[in-house]
Design a protein around this nucleic acid. Structure first.
Lengths: 230, 230
DNA sequence: AGGCGCTTGTGAAGACGTGCACAAATCGCG
DNA sequence: CGCGATTTGTGCACGTCTTCACAAGCGCCT
């Protein structure tokens, strides 16, 4: 499930806070989900808590890390060392969550040779050699949109089967290759949609507004963290 | 819907390519979704294409931009000018997609006064004044996790009702405030999960592996762009 | 040993999203 | 004017996800 990493993060936080065990209710709160949902998710893993007590934090961490394939530290190749790529290369959240940036690549000769965080930027054409040196398990694309498809093709060609795409475009990849997309502008636009909806609702509480604003009330973007607590 | 921004991006690309109209099939391909789903989404907007012809690209762009509330250029306050925040401040994708970064804020006095992309970093305590000057409609949190909740509270206090959170933690906000979360490490972990699953499957095609790896086959992360095209 | 409170795991019901398949509608051409 | 090609809009069925509610199990206290 896509929620497992969230549970894992919450569990790490709980472990650091000194908790040995945690109830489904407690973990659900920390992860921002329903407790029943959490229990069902965990039961799908075959993970056993103990009734009347809760889940063993350390054990659960190990189990989830295993399921997520984090027992090995995965090597990541980052392509595109522009604005965003630069930030990603310096983001220490990767290292602390089970990943190792193994290579920085860019097509711009101007950028090749630059050192970021102890890693030297290499030219994208060296990708085959890089892949031979390191066992790249995930490719991250942080290039401009027009270059993204070509980069994806190159990554696939050297055997990468998981790609995280920050470029605002859809990638075409062979079957068996997984692509996840993160588009910062889209996130903002979804928020903008909610803002617009909220504004229309408060401005025209009775009429309901024009046909366009009078969308079904339940029209909500998925994955939005609704209001929690106070 | 969360897919509207994706449609919008595809439409802009089509418009630049010179297309006047587009069929649901064509737009669906460009946006990476099923054509039936696209038609249903568009019909929920009350948007009318013409049968036998398709959708008018320009008209559809206007409609979606209106629904998303992009007719006005929304002001964004970015809090946390660290690694990631710095990149976001310099990301031109925001400006070109309907947003304007109106303020850069940070708690570190060291960073206050720094100029990024023509904007000066101000101290977070100036947030009320900033909010009075500009009509902030969205707040972006790019701080370390421990600071995120406090920042969120401050944003809410000055009337911000939409927050994009890059910090790896869940935020607690009052009802009526929307929070979207983007966690780069989680995206990688989801890919790692797929990698692990694929590896287990090919390694042990018959046995199915241990109880933990033998997850229901349909256990897939949502929002993943499955293989498309060749 | 027995009972009580607490927590997990799960069955069932409902909501929701997805995709097929087809009727209705429009355009172009003879 | 009529017909065929094409494409939208949508009813329907299906699978998935979510949530409630409760039985089963565990530990602690007496």
């Amino acid at each position: 499930m896509a929620r497992l990493p969230e549970y894992l993060r919450a569990l790490h936080a709980l472990a650091e806070a000194g908790h040995e065990t945690v109830s489904s209710e407690g973990l659900a709160n920390a992860a921002g989900v329903n407790s029943a949902k959490l229990r069902k998710d965990l039961s799908h893993l075959g993970s056993y808590g103990t009734r009347g007590v809760g889940y063993d934090v350390g054990l659960l961490v190990d189990q989830i890390e295993f399921v997520l394939g984090l027992t090995q530290r995965r090597a990541v190749a980052l392509v595109g060392v522009g604005n965003l790529g630069h930030a990603l290369a310096g983001y220490d959240g990767f290292a602390s969550r089970g990943f190792r940036i193994a290579a920085l690549l860019d097509a711009d000769p101007e950028r090749v040779g630059e050192e970021i965080n102890g890693l030297v930027v290499r030219h994208i054409d060296e990708l085959p050699r890089v892949a031979a040196e390191e066992s790249i398990s995930i490719g991250v694309i942080a290039t401009p949109a027009p270059a993204a498809q070509a980069v994806a093709d190159q990554l696939v060609a050297v055997g990468v089967t998981s790609i995280l795409n920050f470029a605002p475009c859809v990638l075409s990849v062979p079957e068996g290759v997984d692509v996840r997309k993160v588009d910062l502008a889209i996130e903002l636009q979804i928020l903008s949609f909610h803002e617009h909806r909220k504004a229309s609702l408060t401005a025209l509480p009775a009429t309901g507004g024009s046909a366009l604003t009078a969308l079904p009330g339940g029209l909500a973007a998925t994955d939005t963290q609704e209001a929690i607590g106070t």
